Simulated scan of single mutants.
Amino acid sequence: MKIYGDIQSGNCYKIKLLASLLNIEHDWIHLDILKDETHTIEFLVKNPNAKIPVLELDDGRCISESNAILNYLASGTEFLSSDPFEYSKIQQWQFFEQYSHEPFIAVARFIAKYLHLPDDRKAEYESKQEGGHKALQVMEQQLRKTPYLTGNKFTTADISLYGYTHVADEGGFDLNEYPAIMLWIGRIQSQPKYIGME
Rank of each mutant, 00 (worst) to 15 (best):
Y4F: 15
G5M: 07
Q8M: 12
Q8P: 01
S9G: 14
G10H: 01
C12F: 06
Y13A: 03
K14T: 06
K16E: 14
A19C: 15
L22W: 03
N23C: 06
E25K: 11
D27V: 01
K35C: 09
K35N: 13
V45M: 14
A50L: 09
P53W: 08
V54G: 13
R61A: 07
I63L: 15
S64P: 05
N67S: 11
N67K: 03
A68C: 14
Y72E: 06
Y72A: 05
Y72Q: 05
L73Q: 09
S75G: 08
G76C: 03
G76P: 05
T77A: 00
E78Y: 00
L80M: 09
L80G: 02
D83Q: 10
E86K: 15
Y87G: 11
Q91A: 06
F96D: 14
S100Q: 15
F104C: 12
I105H: 09
V107K: 11
F110G: 04
K113Y: 12
Y114C: 03
A123I: 07
E124I: 08
Q129L: 15
Q129E: 09
G132D: 12
K134Q: 15
K134D: 14
E140M: 11
E140P: 13
E140Q: 12
Y148K: 02
G151D: 11
K153P: 00
T156D: 04
A157E: 10
I159A: 01
S160N: 07
H166K: 07
V167Y: 01
A168K: 01
A168W: 04
E170C: 00
E177T: 10
L183E: 15
I185C: 02
G186Q: 08
K193M: 08
